[in-house]
Design a protein around this nucleic acid. Structure first.
Lengths: 188, 188
DNA sequence: GTCTATAGATAGATAGAC
DNA sequence: GTCTATCTATCTATAGAC
């Protein structure tokens, strides 16, 4: 069964991308620690060794999944930091954050809820002070307790909301308008 | 070293309670799947068998940890449902939810973020429609998409916030006044 | 009530055939 | 590039001595 063309379903780099897709799905369902390489292999109908041919360790899979959303997040933060007015800063930040969350719902949920993923996200040499910069932007120029509570509440909620079952029927346009609106309400 | 009185540190039922304390701490740090019975035993300086003497399975530990906060949650929900005016309903609900979260920060965080804990919380015959009732109360009499997004965002954020490292220096009084206030702002 | 010992399954990971 | 086979470590859980 030769596959000589790059079909639209599973493009180039097939095996690797399919492994990442399966891992992302299973990680978000069972957590990183709750997902074995055997489960990923079974999901694809291959053996564990086939997965290990693409990634040398389980952690390498997690790192690969985290790379894109973390890079997008850092871009957003940098853009927001470049704004002068606080209102513009918040607008750019909230719109960007919501876009990242809606584009990477499962992975973002992992960073928020899964201790194994959170550890890898922090350790992986990547984005050492990203968390601090994000916190500063959210809490604003007057990081009193009230502002900090609101910003952490919003940040944590946002990261958990992307693939929440109770909102699976809400269309993305509503999410994309409501989430920044609520953010401005909370953080103003 | 006899303990005949119920001291404030490790009351009656010593071994069992110490096991629960260790499990709660480790579960919240590493997740349920990321915590082995060996880790719990090591944390207490005992063997795995000592843990298995108190609990027959790992899941039984999780169920035991979830019982109290889930029971408290159901009480709050019932109290709120008994209110006539929407404003009173929301006041009772928000104050109660915040109290539960602040009293059980680690466990509540597990229910929100850990798929293994969430599954046990739902399956464990306990509180079959608690989630639906809570959602109805939060979303209010007009559960349009906007109200639902706000209620899920608040609920998810609240459950993740109890033992968040960025808020560890905020005094409980501030949390207890700010969190319901933000909730009313979002859900009104 | 806590231990040793161990079963049985599965984890992550490697080597080498095809 | 995917397979079989296998290693070692660790997992949950049990049985039985002390």
């Amino acid at each position: 069964m030769d596959v000589t063309d790059d079909s639209a379903t599973t493009q180039r780099g097939t095996a690797r991308d399919r492994a990442l897709d399966a891992a992302r799905t299973l990680f978000s369902q069972n957590g990183v620690s709750g997902t074995s390489l055997q489960m990923i292999a079974d999901h694809l109908g291959v053996t564990k060794a086939a997965i290990y041919h693409q990634f040398h360790t389980k952690e390498e899979i997690v790192v690969t999944l985290l790379e894109k959303p973390l890079a997008e997040l850092e871009t957003i933060i940098t853009e927001a930091e470049a704004m002068d007015a606080r209102e513009d800063q918040l607008d750019v930040l909230l719109k960007g954050l919501v876009d990242v969350v809606l584009a990477n719902p499962e992975v973002v949920g992992l960073i928020q809820g899964d201790p194994a993923a959170a550890r890898i996200a922090q350790v992986g040499r990547l984005h050492g002070d990203t968390g601090r910069r994000l916190t500063n932007l959210l809490s604003g120029p007057h990081p009193d307790p009230e502002a900090r509570v609101a910003s952490v509440l919003y940040g944590a909620g946002l990261m958990s909301i992307g693939h929440h079952p109770l909102l699976s029927d809400i269309d993305p346009e509503t999410m994309r308008s409501e989430l920044p609106r609520i953010g401005r309400l909370m953080l103003r």
